[in-house]
Simulated scan of single mutants.
Amino acid sequence: MAEIRELKRPKGLLFDKDGTMFDYHRTWTPLLTEVAERLAVGDRRKVQAMLAAIGHDAESGRFLSGSIAAAGDTFALADVWLRHLDGADRAALIATLDAHFAEEGPKRSIPVADLAALFGRLKANGFILGIATNDVEASALGTVERFRLGAHVDFVAGYDSGHGQKPGPGMALAFCDAVKLMPVEIAVIGDNSHDLEMGRRAGAGLGIGVLTGTSARDDLAPLADHVIESIELLPPLLDSFES
């Protein structure tokens, strides 16, 4: 586990999106495979090479913790895939990827819980909620709309929202600024080291790792104050803290 800290009940909860609110592998393996097939124009060997280059393990059928697919943004993804796409234009590729994720992501995301019920419960208990993702902002906003979270979420940011990308602290600090909280008053919840590193760099009071993404407990424990199986277990964990 992370070093022992004096932990208090947070006032704000900043959630990662994919792997935290949504089952990473069931959502993103098909999304990334489909767009790779489209870009490779049916060349199966090229598709496999593109997926392997961003962290796909063919034996397990899963993306690896800390890989570009698991932790990167569209810029990083495009820069790797450009090596496999002769003559492709970087700006056009980024636009193609972001459009695909914005259109298909919200429709295809598979939640790890009844998100509207969970977020409603957390909001009713006085928590201020936000979402910070290395996905494109339009995808995050579409997801909020599809899963009826608009009444509960006070802040949404993607890699292109102007606050920088994870593991930088920008999105966490922007959340604090938007909802008028100090960094020590928030918890960052995520499935990957870059989520927890963002929280630590911002000075967040609490880091909570979840196991619904690409990371194992041992991957998250060095950076997290707590590691839980799923965000479904957040309410009892938060109830255990003194105000």
Rank of each mutant, 00 (worst) to 15 (best):
R62W: 10
V112H: 06
L238R: 06
E145C: 11
V227W: 02
Y159G: 09
I228N: 02
V210M: 02
L149R: 05
V156H: 04
G213E: 05
S109A: 14
G130R: 00
M198G: 00
S139Y: 04
L85M: 03
L196D: 00
A69L: 10
G61H: 05
H194Q: 03
L233H: 15
P183M: 02
M198A: 01
D239A: 14
Y24G: 11
G72A: 06
Y24V: 11
R44I: 15
E34N: 14
R146K: 07
P167T: 00
A40F: 07
A187Q: 02
V144D: 04
G12Q: 03
M21I: 13
L64K: 11
A117F: 12
I231R: 09
P30F: 15
I128G: 01
Q48D: 12
L141T: 11
G207F: 02
R121T: 13
I189Y: 00
D18P: 15
K123I: 03
A95E: 14
G42N: 09
V136Y: 05
I110C: 12
L233Q: 10
D218V: 10
V47E: 04
I4E: 10
G105A: 08
M182H: 15
G150C: 11
D86F: 07
D135A: 07
D43F: 07
H194L: 02
R83T: 12
Y159R: 14
S65I: 07
G158Y: 08
L223F: 06
L82D: 08
R217Q: 08
E3H: 13
Q48S: 10
D23E: 13
L115Q: 07
L77S: 07
E104M: 15
D225Q: 08
L223A: 06
A102I: 01
S193F: 00
H226K: 10
L238G: 01
A224N: 02
S60I: 12
M50R: 00
V153C: 06
A132N: 04
A216P: 06
G55D: 09
L181P: 01
F63C: 06
K46I: 05
R5T: 11
V80I: 10
I131P: 03
E37V: 11
Q48C: 03
L77Q: 13
L7T: 08
M171C: 01
E37R: 13
W28A: 15
V47K: 00
R9N: 08
R200E: 13
K123A: 09
G72M: 04
I94T: 07
G105D: 11
M182L: 15
R5H: 13
I68T: 14
L122G: 01
G164S: 06
A221T: 05
E242I: 08
V184F: 12
K123N: 05
G19Y: 15
H163N: 10
P169Y: 00
F22E: 12
R26H: 15
T74W: 08
A202D: 05
G203S: 08
G55N: 04
V144I: 13
D154S: 14
E103N: 07
D191I: 00
M198R: 03
G120T: 06
A91Y: 09
K17F: 10
L129T: 03
C176T: 02
D177T: 09
